[in-house]
Amino acid sequence: MPEPAERELPGSRPASRTPEPPAPAAPDDTDLESGPRRALATLYGIFALAATARAVVQLATQFDQAPLAYSLSLLSGLVYLAATVGLATQRRWSRPLTLVAVCVELVGVLGIGLWSLLDPALFPHDTVWSKFGYGYVFIPVALPILGLTWWWRTRPGTSGDGDSAR
C-alpha cells in the first residue's frame, strides 16, 4: 500500500478544510467530537432511512396485520431520524436532541426487545427493535450504547481530545 496514496482520495479537493501536515503523520483521530460523531451519524442515518421506509411501506400496505409492531417501527424510525439530525448538526439543541433520542432508543430497544420475547403474540410481525434487534444483527442494541458512550466522553467540561479525557 503506497503511503502517499492514502492522503488523496478521488474527488477530494486539494485544499481540505483542516490543513494537514505534509508528512504522513498519524491523522488527528483523537478528536472525539467530530470523527466518531460522523461515523455515528452515518450509521444512524442509514437506520433512520431503513426503519422509516420499512414502517411506511408496512403501514401503507398491511396495517391491519400488526398495527402495534408497525407503529413502533415508525416510532423507531423517527427516533433514529432525530438522533441523526442531532449528530449531523452543530446547533445549541444538537447535543440535547441527540441525548434524548439515544435515551429513548435505548429504552425502546430494551423494552420492546424484552416485551417481544415475553409476549410474542403482540408482535406477530417483527419491528426493528424486536428481540433486541436480532433481525438487524443486533446493531439496534449496540447503537444507543455507542451513542451514549460518545455523548458522555464528549460532554462539555471534558477536553474531548482522547480516550483519557475525564
Binding site: L9, A39, T42, I46
Partner: peptide
Amino acid sequence: AGVLIPLPVGLWMARLERTRWGSVALAST
C-alpha cells in the same frame, strides 16, 4: 433500491473524514 444507498454515504464520509473514523463509517456501511 435501498442497497444502493449505504456505500455512497460511506464513501462520501470516507472522503470527508480523513481519519480512522472514515474507515469506521465505510466498514459499517
